[in-house]
Design a protein around this nucleic acid. Structure first.
Lengths: 217, 217
DNA sequence: GGGTGTGAACGGATTCACAGCA
DNA sequence: TGCTGTGAATCCGTTCACACCC
């Protein structure tokens, strides 16, 4: 119903608005927000339409109202809990990144199969054994899983999480997880991302050379 | 010219083919590859079209040939060098993730402003002071930059990298970097990604409840 | 028959363009 | 006048459908 990209951008607008408000601006125009988010102004207005309108035809948007509307639209009325599986380098980085960043979204449990990690806390989040996953996830009512395990374990872990009642997965393992259940799955493929940048960087290089202005900048 | 998504998928097909080959299969059909990559078979064939054909009308694709074609298409003839800026939790995780993973793509330098990190190695990659960035990047001929700094520094760092002659940026800082130069920019927004999963997870929840089969699974 | 390569149809997201309003 | 809200047009990626070949 709501385009996925719109949700991503609303999350971005929200961060921009927090900053804008901190700087004391009360009103903001779609074209200003667009410039800061590097998108088209019509795009911004269309995204905001999804919230139900809050703009004034000539005065722009009230930054505070807009922020509130986005919060209400994007975040749950009640708390939404997250679990992370795979407390390796990437897992720890994600725990640190996501710790205490959201009002109504929080990482409550981590899981790893390494006994040396079980029982410790990472960025304030207790680490359990993978065996305890089904119990902990359903007891805490966790609804979102983050997968940061190696590729080999990812599919297994995904199944465990889904069976335990999770409704969304954010997968960082370099495999595409299947989707057709009643679980929303987002795959973040770091390897593909770097390959893509490398490919198009060469393309840019070639274009720059072709159009004459080669070399540094 | 070539769709971005196609490049991402080719990177994925490549990994799948490596595994397929390791398991000893010589030939593979588009629908098999499609099943493993969780995409449509026509999609696979169309992506492969970009490579120039390698399929046999009824026999499928030779896994080895296909792999070679993808490598040739995706990777540079000569080495392509990468730098990473911001050796925090996320930066170190990315260094570990990308270390020695590609044949013709390698992370050669890291940068941080923390003096305690400068001079050390992380996953085999030497860490320099940010002040040395322009010199090191141009001396080594680095063409790709990975930004893993906090949001506040990201824009500055991006400019430094671009001025030093980089042609592609992979940005993990939670800001959208501008694009109109001759530099390809890919923004990976972890915050948006989690917000999106949370949003659609709730949506899935609601649908599941509405369609009757509520509760676990 | 069954699979590849590809024109054509489809669909979703972005952008344009303008009506309506402060 | 200048911005919002939004129908209409456009663009791009995906999927369908089929001609062609082993």
């Amino acid at each position: 119903m709501v385009p996925e990209k719109t949700i991503e951008r609303l999350s971005l607008y929200r961060r921009i608005l927090l900053q804008v408000r901190a700087e004391g601006a009360a009103m903001i125009f779609s074209h200003q927000l667009a410039a800061m988010a590097r998108v088209n102004a019509a795009q911004v207005r269309r995204d905001i339409m999804q919230l139900g309108c809050v703009g004034v035809p000539n005065g722009g948007y009230d930054a505070g109202d807009l922020l509130d509307s986005i919060d209400e639209f994007l975040y749950p009325p009640t708390f939404q809990k997250v679990a992370l599986v795979g407390v390796g380098n990437l897992g720890r980085a994600l725990l640190a990144h996501f710790a205490g960043r959201w009002r109504r979204l929080s990482v409550r449990a981590a899981f790893d199969k390494d006994p040396a990690k079980v029982g410790r806390e990472f960025s304030g989040c207790p680490c359990h054994a993978v065996e305890a996953l089904p119990r902990v996830v359903s007891e805490l009512g966790i609804s979102i899983g983050i997968i940061a395990t190696p590729a080999a374990q990812a599919e297994n872990v995904a199944e465990l999480l889904c069976d335990a009642g999770v409704r969304g997965l954010l997968n960082f393992a370099p495999v595409r997880l299947p989707g057709p259940t009643h679980v929303y799955i987002e795959n973040v493929d770091l390897t593909s991302a770097l390959d893509k940048v490398a490919f198009f960087a060469r393309q840019c290089e070639r274009e720059a050379l072709a159009s004459g202005a080669g070399g540094t900048r």
